[in-house]
Design a protein around this nucleic acid. Structure first.
Ligand SMILES: [Mn+2]
Ligand SMILES: [Mn+2]
Ligand SMILES: [Mn+2]
Ligand SMILES: [Mn+2]
Lengths: 218, 218
DNA sequence: ACTATTTTTTAGGGTTATCTAAATTTATAA
DNA sequence: TTATAAATTTAGATAACCCTAAAAAATAGT
C-alpha cells in the first residue's frame, strides 16, 4: 500500500507531465510538492524500486503503467470528493480543493464506488475537470481556451485551467461559471484582452491571461 | 495541530477511561492501540508536554480539559461520518467503522459543520451512540442493557455497546436493529440467556453476553 | 573546447513513531 | 518482610520522510 506522500508524488508527476506525456524534472517536482530537490531524489529512488516510475538519473521521471493507474485513481477520488462537497454540502468551487487534498487519500474501494453512485456517476468536477472512471478511463472533452474564440463567436464555458481560490473567486465575482454561455463582443488586439457577454446579459472584461485559463465548448 | 497518531491516543484514552472518569494504564492503552507499552510511554510524555493529558509515572493517565475537548471533536467527526455512510451512501452498520477511522482525521471545521447540517443534526450514529455537538456536549441517553429488562417487559432497542462487525452482522441476521421493539418472553435463570420477540413477530434467542451488549430504552 | 552556471545527486543529519531487550518500580504472596 | 512476579519505563535501534551543504553532472556562453 502507498503512503500519503507517495500518492502525492504520483499525482503531481501525472499533472506536471501533461497527463503522462513528457518527463518531469527533479526541480519541477520539488516546486510542485513544495519540497527540496534532494528530498525528491530520495523519493524517486523509492518509487522507482516499486516500479511506479521510470527514473533516469539527471533526465527526469515518467510514470509506469502501474504508476499512472495509481495516479488516476487518486485523481478520481479527488474530483469525486470535490463534486460531493459542491453538489451535496453546498461548498463553493473555490473552497473544495484543500479539503479534497485530504479526502483523496482515504482508502476504501467500496466508499468510492458508493460515492460515485450517490453523485449519479458525474463526468466532470466543479471546475469542469474530467473524472476518470473506475478503470482509469478519462471522458474525452473537446475544449478550447476562450482566448481562441473568434470575435462575435459564441461558446459555453466548460472548465477552468487552474483552480486557485483567488482566480475562482474573481470569476464568480464577474459572473463567470461552468455552463454559462459567452459571446466575445470585442478583442483588443494590443493586449488580447476581451470584452464578453455572459448569458446574453452581463458584460465583463477579461485579461488575455484570464481568457487563456477559461476553457469553452463551441 | 495534532498528528494522526496523537488523535488516536486521545480518542482511545477517552473510551478506555469511561468517558474521562478513571485513569487509564499503560498496558490497557497498548492493547487498545495495538502497540507496545514502551511505545505508549513515549507518546504519553509527548501528550503530557502538550498539556493534553495528566500523566503520573506508573499510575496511568487522564485527559485534561483540553485533551477531552480534542477527543470529543474526533468522536463527533467519527460518528457523523458513520451516519453519513449509512444514511446517504447505503452502507450497512457493520461496514462503517473502519472507514470512519480514517475520515475522523480530516481537518476542516467547515466540512464537519456542513456535514452535520446535511444529515439534519443527528443525535446518534448508526450504532445508537450519541454524537457530541460542536461544543463537545453529549446528548443524554437513558439506557439499560437488555440483560436487565424484566421478563414480559417491553423496550425499544436504542444502541449496541460494542460495534464489532461480527456482532453487528449476527444481530442483523437474527433481526435486531436500532428502533426495534423487543419483549423478553423468557429468561433462562441457569445461564441468563433470553428468548425475545422482535416487533411482536420475530422470535430470537440471545446469550447473556449478547443481551448485555444491547442497550434499550423503556 | 573550455569555463561558468545551473541542475541534480550524494553525504550527513534531524524528527516522529515504532520496536525489542534491559532496567526499574510497584504489586503479590509466602 | 522479603522474594518473586507483573507492570512500566529507559536504552538503544530502525524506517519513513525531510533538511542543508558539498560534490558531481549536464548545459550554456564565449
Ligand atoms: Mn482540486
Ligand atoms: Mn477540481
Ligand atoms: Mn465506529
Ligand atoms: Mn458508531
Amino acid at each position: 500500500m502507498l503512503s500519503f506522500t507517495e500518492e502525492n508524488y504520483l499525482k503531481t508527476i501525472y499533472h506536471l507531465s501533461g497527463e503522462g506525456q513528457k518527463a518531469v524534472l527533479t526541480t519541477e517536482l520539488a516546486a510542485g510538492l513544495n519540497t527540496r530537490p534532494a528530498t525528491v531524489t530520495d523519493m524517486l529512488k523509492k518509487l522507482s524500486a516499486k516500479d511506479l516510475i521510470a527514473y533516469e538519473k539527471y533526465y527526469g521521471v515518467q510514470l509506469t503503467k502501474k504508476g499512472k493507474a495509481e495516479a488516476l485513481l487518486i485523481i478520481r477520488k479527488h474530483r469525486l470528493w470535490e463534486t460531493f462537497l459542491v453538489e451535496k454540502l453546498g461548498f463553493t468551487w473555490d473552497e473544495v480543493h484543500e479539503v479534497a487534498e485530504q479526502l483523496e487519500h482515504i482508502q476504501s474501494p467500496l466508499l468510492i464506488e458508493k460515492l460515485d453512485a450517490f453523485l449519479g456517476h458525474p463526468k466532470t468536477d466543479p471546475h469542469g475537470h474530467p473524472i476518470p472512471d473506475k478503470t482509469g478511463k478519462l471522458p474525452v472533452m473537446i475544449q478550447t481556451p476562450l482566448a481562441e474564440v473568434d470575435v462575435k463567436g459564441k461558446a459555453t464555458i466548460s472548465a477552468v485551467r487552474h483552480a486557485s481560490a483567488v482566480f475562482l473567486q474573481y470569476l464568480s465575482k464577474i459572473g463567470v461559471y461552468i455552463g454559462a454561455t459567452v459571446q466575445v463582443a470585442e478583442r483588443n488586439e494590443f493586449d488580447r484582452s476581451v470584452q464578453i457577454v455572459i448569458d446574453g446579459k452581463k458584460k465583463a472584461y477579461l485579461s488575455r491571461e484570464a481568457s487563456e485559463n477559461i476553457m469553452v465548448e463551441k
